[in-house]
Structure formats: C-alpha cells, structure tokens
C-alpha cells in the first residue's frame, strides 16, 4: 500500500484533530485549551484545502479557509478575553476551579 500525497495530508488532518480533541479532554488550563482548539482548527483548514485540491475548486476552498481562519481567530480572541476575566475574578485558569455551576 502506498500512500498518496492526499492520503498523507489526511493523516495530518486526523492527527491534528486527534491531538486537539485529546487535549480538550485532558488539559485544564484555559489558555492551553485555546491552543488545543487552534490545533483542531489547523486540522480543519487543512482538510478544506485538501477538499478543494481533490475537487479541483481550490479558489473556493481558499475562500472558505479564509472565512474559517477569521471566524476561529475571533473565537480564540473571545476565549482569551473570557480567560483574562476569569483570571481576574478567580485567580485561576483551571477548569476544576471554574466548575461551581453543577448538578
């Protein structure tokens, strides 16, 4: 079995996705969770471009990738703003410390 270039990219996508999700499960620090989300986003953007490459619509794929980059940077920025406020309020970024709302 030989791996083609698209297969390789797909493996990269899956790896980034897996790493990102794994991090979301295990990481407790909010800033690092943002990093994990960004890793996830990299995977998705790569997948978009791959899809464009495979379907011969690279222009449209790039346009979509751009939108995703902007949207997720915005989410990251909002996440950081929330994290900063959490830090101010609670003096901690740990998810177990911000788990007062439960049950």
């Amino acid at each position: 079995m030989t791996l083609t270039f698209p297969d390789l990219v797909l493996i990269a996508v899956m790896a980034l996705f897996g790493i990102g999700l794994y991090a979301l499960l295990t990481i407790r620090n909010l800033i690092r969770i943002i990093v994990a989300l960004q890793v996830l986003v990299k995977g998705v953007i790569l997948l978009i471009i791959l899809a464009g490459y495979l379907t011969n619509q690279i222009g449209m794929a790039q346009s979509m990738a751009l939108t995703v980059i902007v949207a997720d940077t915005i989410v990251a920025v909002l996440g950081m703003a929330l994290a900063v406020q959490i830090m101010r309020k609670k003096k901690s970024l740990d998810t177990s410390d911000i788990a007062e709302l439960k049950r």
């Binding site: 979301l24 499960l25 998810t95 788990a99 709302l101 439960k102």
Partner: peptide, 15 residues
C-alpha cells in the same frame, strides 16, 4: 452527578 460542571467532562460527554 452527570452534570459535573467541568468543561473537560462536558466535552467528554459530547465525544
């Protein structure tokens, strides 16, 4: 108790 309030567990439930 399933409503842990912890973000990680929330995502765990989702997955």
């Amino acid at each position: 108790y399933t409503q842990t309030g912890v973000l990680n567990w929330n995502i765990f439930g989702m997955l």
